[in-house]
């Protein structure tokens, strides 16, 4: 059993980072990648812009959509994304710490549904969303990656995540895609010891 789902949380300054990562994924990437990018509720263009950086199939999540490998899923603006085993649910509950979609909520539900098969990634941003969720991913046996704050456009969010998850892999953004592929090949370490 290896990793199934990569969950990515990103806020201010995220477009460049996302383009770098999505653009460096090779066709053998066969996990599902789920991205929560904080944005205004009428910003619809993100998916189109991001698609220009990457050959990976990507689109915005529809409620109850199945989770398939090798796909990139974007949280739609103004909805929370909840990860269930095998599919997504959306919600319009109140924002959590001013954010809808909330990175923490998406991460926590992914940790609940996929346990040690999750890799959580926190990128550039100007708030603390994602730190608690990343902690839960690691507590349930998943892996954590944090963009090196020194190389992030806005260091607040990766710094908060690193403070909460000191065991995270801290790497510059251009090393994240290669690291994901390496983790995919290696599989979840706790499963090997079984």
């Amino acid at each position: 059993m290896g990793y199934e789902v990569v969950v990515v949380g990103v806020s201010a300054g995220g477009l460049q980072a996302l383009c770098t990562i999505a653009g460096s994924l090779t066709p053998d990437f066969n996990m599902a990648m789920v991205i929560v990018q904080h944005r205004s509720k009428d910003s619809y263009a993100l998916c189109d812009v991001l698609q220009e950086c990457s050959a990976m199939p990507m689109h915005e999540i529809i409620d109850k959509e199945p989770i398939s490998p090798g796909q990139i899923y974007l949280a739609p603006p103004d909805y929370h994304v909840l990860v269930e085993r095998g599919y997504f649910s959306l919600s319009v509950d109140d924002p959590i710490r001013h954010s809808r979609p909330s990175i923490d909520l998406m991460f926590e539900t992914a940790a609940d549904a996929y346990g040690r098969e999750v890799i959580g990634v926190v990128l550039t941003g100007a708030n603390h969303d994602g730190a608690r969720g990343l902690r839960q991913i690691v507590d349930r046996g998943g892996a954590a990656i944090v963009q090196d704050p020194a190389t992030a456009e806005v260091a607040v969010m990766p710094r908060a995540a690193y403070a909460m998850v000191p065991e995270a892999n801290v790497v510059p953004v251009e090393e994240i895609a290669p690291l994901l592929l390496a983790l995919q090949r290696a599989g979840s370490p706790r499963t090997e010891t079984r």
Partner: peptide
Amino acid sequence: MAEMVLPNTPAKYSKD
């Protein structure tokens, strides 16, 4: 409306 932060399962709780 007050911000609703929905809690997750306590860490030690068995999922099953």
